[in-house]
Design a protein around this nucleic acid. Structure first.
Lengths: 96, 96
DNA sequence: TCATCATATGAACGATTCGTCATATGATAA
DNA sequence: TTATCATATGACGAATCGTTCATATGATGA
C-alpha cells in the first residue's frame, strides 16, 4: 500500500493533467520543444493564460523549461509523461 | 494531431483521476475487486461520498461494476487504468 | 541609456467540484 | 408483505480552479 502522501501526490499529478488547456499544451510538446510564444499562437490564447498554465505544469514537474536568449523553451519532463499521455489516449480512443 | 474532442476526453479522464478520494478508491481496487461497503470501511468515509465518487469513476469508464446479490462489486475498467496508476506512481516516487 | 520583445505574476470574477444530509431504490430474508 | 441491508441520488454550501486584465521582470538591440 503506497503511503498516504504518495497517493496525494499522484492525485495532484493527475489533477494537473486534467485540464483541456494543459492537455493541448502537453500534446504540442509531445511532438517538439516549444517556447511560450509558439504555444500561445498554437493554442490561440492569451499569453498570460498560457504562462499561468505552464507554471502549474512546471510546479507539478510535468514539464521542464530552459532559457534560450529572450525565449523560454518547454519540454515534457520525462518518459513517464509521454507514457501517461499515450496510454490515456489509447484508453479514450478505444472507448469510442 | 489527435482531434479536439479526443483531447477533451483525455483531459476529462485525467480530471477524474485527479482527486485524492478517487485515487484511494482506485488504489484499493488495484489489488482486488471490492463492494461499496468494503470501500466505505477502507476509506473510513461516508457511504454517500463513496457512492458519489464511484458514479464519477463509472461515468468516466475508469471502473466497472457488477451486481452480486445485495452488493455491487467494483473493478478497474481495463489494463490502461492499471498502467496509468502504476506509471503515475513511478513518476511521483522518482520525484522524491 | 532607452525602447521593445518575451515571459511571469497578482488580483478578481465566474464556474466547477467534493462532502454532507436526507431520501430513494432495490434486493434479501422472515 | 414488512423489515432490513446495500447502494444510489438530489440539493446545498464551502472551497478550489481557469481566465482575464493590468503590471512587473528580464533580456536584446539601437
Amino acid at each position: 500500500m503506497p503511503g498516504a502522501s504518495l497517493q496525494e501526490d499522484l492525485a495532484q499529478l493527475f489533477k494537473v493533467l486534467g485540464d483541456h488547456t494543459r492537455i493541448r499544451i502537453l500534446n504540442a510538446l509531445y511532438r517538439s520543444e516549444l517556447c511560450v510564444c509558439d504555444l500561445t499562437s498554437i493554442l490561440g490564447m492569451n499569453q498570460s493564460a498560457v504562462s499561468h498554465q505552464l507554471r502549474v505544469l512546471r510546479d507539478a514537474k510535468i514539464v521542464r523549461s530552459k532559457k534560450q536568449g529572450k525565449n523560454v523553451l518547454y519540454n515534457l519532463d520525462d518518459s513517464h509523461i509521454f507514457d501517461l499521455i499515450r496510454i490515456g489516449f489509447e484508453h479514450v480512443q478505444e472507448g469510442e
